[in-house]
Amino acid sequence: KRPMNAFIVWSRDQRRKMALENPRMRNSEISKQLGYQWKMLTEAEKWPFFQEAQKLQAMHREKYPNYK
Rank of each mutant, 00 (worst) to 15 (best):
L41R: 00
W47C: 06
Q54M: 09
E62D: 10
Q37V: 06
I30V: 08
L41T: 01
M18F: 06
I8L: 12
Y64L: 13
E62M: 03
A44M: 03
L20V: 10
N27G: 07
M40H: 10
M59C: 08
M59K: 11
F7T: 00
F49C: 11
S28G: 06
I8N: 13
L34C: 01
Q33W: 08
L41K: 03
F7L: 04
E45G: 02
I30A: 02
K46L: 01
L56F: 04
H60E: 14
Q14N: 00
S28Q: 08
F7Q: 03
Q54W: 03
D13S: 02
L56S: 05
A6H: 01
S11W: 03
S11E: 09
N22C: 05
T42V: 04
N66F: 03
P48W: 02
M59G: 10
I30Q: 00
Y36R: 13
N66K: 15
W10S: 06
N5I: 07
M4F: 02
L41I: 00
E52H: 08
R24H: 14
I30N: 06
N27S: 10
L20Y: 15
Y67R: 14
S28N: 07
I8C: 12
A58K: 13
Q14G: 00
E45V: 01
P48I: 05
L56V: 06
I8A: 14
W38Q: 01
Q54I: 05
S11V: 08
Q37C: 08
K68A: 09
Y67H: 15
A19R: 13
L34P: 04
N27T: 09
R24S: 13
T42G: 01
W47M: 14
H60I: 01
I8Y: 11
A6G: 08
M18L: 14
P3W: 07
F49S: 03
Y36G: 09
G35I: 13
K63W: 06
E62V: 08
P23C: 07
K55A: 10
A58T: 05
Q37A: 07
E45Q: 08
N5P: 08
M4A: 08
R61K: 14
Q37D: 09
R15Y: 15
M25L: 09
K63D: 14
Q54L: 05
A6K: 01
E45C: 01
M59Y: 09
P65D: 15
A19D: 03
L34G: 05
N22H: 15
E29A: 03
F7N: 02
K17A: 00
H60A: 10
W38R: 06
Y36P: 10
L34A: 01
S28E: 14
Q33S: 09
V9F: 12
D13E: 12
F50M: 12
R2I: 10
M25F: 05
E62S: 09
Q37G: 01
R2N: 11
V9M: 10
M59E: 14
E21W: 01
P65W: 07
P65C: 14
R24Y: 12
E21C: 10
I30L: 02
E62I: 07
Q51N: 09
F7R: 02
I8S: 14
N27F: 11
Y36E: 15
A44H: 00
H60D: 13
P48M: 13
E29I: 12
L34H: 00
F49E: 04
P48D: 07
L20R: 09
N22E: 14
H60V: 10
Y64P: 13
Q57P: 02
Q33F: 01
P23Q: 01
S31V: 11
W47H: 12
R15M: 03
F50L: 11
Q57G: 14
E21K: 06
E62C: 10
T42D: 15
K32G: 02
K63T: 12
K68S: 02
F49V: 04
K32W: 00
K32N: 04
D13W: 06
L20P: 06
N5F: 02
N27P: 12
A6L: 03
E52T: 04
W10F: 10
F7D: 00
S11T: 03
Y36V: 14
E21F: 02
L56G: 06
P23S: 00
K55W: 01
K1G: 13
Q51E: 12
E29S: 05
E52Y: 03
N66W: 07
S28V: 05
R26M: 14
Q54R: 11
W10I: 02
K63H: 13
H60Q: 15
R61M: 10
I8F: 11
Y67W: 15
E21G: 02
A44T: 12
P23K: 05
S28A: 09
I30S: 05
M59L: 10
I30W: 02
K1Y: 12
A6F: 02
M25S: 07
Y36K: 14
A6E: 04
F50G: 07
P3L: 02
K1M: 07
R2V: 10
R15K: 11
A58L: 08
L41G: 05
P3C: 12
A44G: 05
Y36M: 04
Y36A: 14
F50C: 05
E52R: 08
L41W: 00
L34Q: 00
A44I: 05
Y67A: 14
G35S: 14
A44Y: 04
R26W: 04
T42I: 00
S11N: 02
E45W: 01
I30C: 06
E21P: 00
T42Y: 04
M59D: 11
L34K: 00
R26A: 15
R15D: 11
E21Q: 03
K32S: 07
R26F: 05
R24G: 15
F50T: 13
W47Q: 15
F50W: 04
R61T: 12
S31M: 13
E62Y: 13
R26L: 13
D13P: 00
M4Q: 08
E62R: 06
R2A: 07
Q51L: 08
Y36L: 14
K55D: 10
P23R: 02
E62N: 10
Q54Y: 09
Q14R: 09
A19C: 06
E45H: 07
A6P: 07
Q57I: 04
N22K: 01
D13F: 02
K32I: 09
N5G: 10
P48L: 08
E52M: 00
A6W: 00
K46V: 04
E62A: 13
S11M: 06
R24E: 13
Q37L: 06
A44C: 05
L34M: 01
A58C: 12
G35L: 12
N22Q: 06
